[in-house]
Simulated scan of single mutants.
Amino acid sequence: MRSLTLPIQAGRMMITTRREELALEDCLAGATRQNPKRHYLFVSKVLGKHWPVRPRVMRDVHRRLAEKMAHLPGPLLVIGMAETATALGRGVAEEAALQTGRDDILYLQTTRCRLSRPLAFGFDECHSHAPDHAVYLPDPALQPLFRAARTLVLVDDEISTGRTLAELARACLRLNPGIEQIALVCITHWLSVTQQQQLTALLERPLLFPALIEGSFQFEPDPRFPAPVLPWVIGHPNRSHDDIATDSARTGLIAGRWRTNSLSQWESVRARGRKDQPLAIIGTGEYAYTPFRMALALEEQGYDVRYQSTTRSPILVGDAIACRREFLDNYGDGIPNYLYNLDPVRLPVIVYEHPAMLAAHSLADDLGGLAVAVEESCRAS
């Protein structure tokens, strides 16, 4: 057990760890949200979101967490939390399938995209700047596996109170009352024993808490810090995303069937860049796992690669955030998006899930980089 303090603009984050499978300093730093609901933010150094990370480091995290839940009774329903933990959630599901060879792991992710298909359930993330989440029913061929799930695995980057995951679990249990146990999987969890017991009683199922770092924290606000104001958002709340939201993770897939031999767009990146040129492979919002695998494949072929992704989360520059780019989202919703801590010496490669975004979104040109769309050619399940 050890204690440390992370000073940020909005105050101090005081942390006590009970267990560290990976060193805390290697996994996270602190930052200040541009959000009056919650001022502090844990910035993960291994997630591939706000902080550039080596792809092999990300995969090591996926493998470590997968080892902690791959043995659970199946079928397993694994749900990754949008937008931050979509690559993490699918990575854990894929690695669990690879480690065991099992074919009963169904992966879904929550989404803020609006699709014209049956909704399984929706719920809110109370502290978020963008609270509405949706989970869509899987394609008909996968619905028997969805409804037969015995274990529910919810994946997020960190758990501070457990309220959001509890809301998701309760919504899922109303649809699938036959679920026998639940695992809340994360990189860092800050729940006390009492909080874990309260969640177990609330959900009326055995609960597991697989994590790499366990502990507790307190945030001490600085009374001199002015409360930040959320960015002004107009947006298009009723816009449909059917024509461009092609990632099958939103509609269900069986983990372990990923294949990489059809990702021909890698050749485009190789042809347009030098092998000795450092690369920044950049996913876009919820669409994070395929760009991560692209970055991992390039790294395995000898390229100097870092991976990160754009986000809807507004964070103030300072603390763990060295720089910030702001632009409108690539889905045409008029939502401000951000890219943090981009290394200026690396060639940015923006990875979209639909080719229409290449012409409609100017981020690559603004950054002096490249843009590719790969999802159409790599859907494997």
Rank of each mutant, 00 (worst) to 15 (best):
A359I: 06
N176R: 14
V229N: 05
D157V: 01
D304P: 02
A297D: 15
V345L: 14
A356G: 02
S248N: 11
L47S: 05
R114W: 09
L230K: 11
D276Y: 07
F42W: 09
A120K: 05
P344G: 14
V53G: 10
L296E: 15
V57T: 14
R224I: 01
R324W: 06
R224W: 03
H354T: 11
K37D: 07
R12K: 05
S128Y: 10
L230S: 14
Q109T: 12
L77G: 06
L106A: 09
T151F: 08
V53A: 11
A23Q: 15
L367I: 10
P144C: 10
R379T: 08
L202S: 06
G273N: 10
T251N: 08
A320M: 00
R18S: 10
K45N: 10
C172Y: 02
T84V: 06
I15M: 01
Y40T: 02
A359W: 00
T290A: 15
R224C: 04
E158A: 02
P355R: 14
R18T: 03
D104R: 05
F146K: 04
I315R: 01
V155G: 09
N238C: 03
R250P: 04
L168A: 12
I315M: 03
M58Y: 09
E125D: 07
Q99D: 12
L4K: 07
L47M: 08
G273K: 06
V92N: 07
V269S: 13
K68A: 07
Y136H: 12
R205Q: 05
I213E: 05
L230G: 11
D26E: 15
V372C: 10
D222V: 00
D319C: 00
Y107T: 09
F146T: 07
E94H: 08
H361R: 12
T151D: 10
E167V: 03
P131A: 04
L137Q: 13
E83P: 11
F292C: 06
H354D: 15
P348W: 02
L106S: 07
A359V: 06
I350Y: 08
L370P: 08
P228R: 04
A364D: 13
Y340M: 02
D319Y: 03
G178I: 01
T32I: 00
T161N: 01
E267H: 11
T200A: 09
L142R: 13
K68R: 15
P73R: 06
S381R: 14
Q196I: 04
Q197K: 00
H354R: 05
P228T: 05
Y331N: 08
G215C: 05
N341K: 00
F292T: 05
L296T: 12
E67I: 07
R174G: 14
V269N: 11
R112L: 13
A134P: 02
N238G: 06
R174Y: 02
V185W: 02
A320N: 04
Q196C: 03
N337S: 15
C113M: 08
V233G: 06
S262Y: 15
G332S: 04
S128N: 03
A380M: 12
L347Y: 09
V374M: 13
M69W: 09
R56P: 07
Y287C: 01
P336Y: 13
L199H: 03
A295Y: 09
K68T: 07
T200N: 00
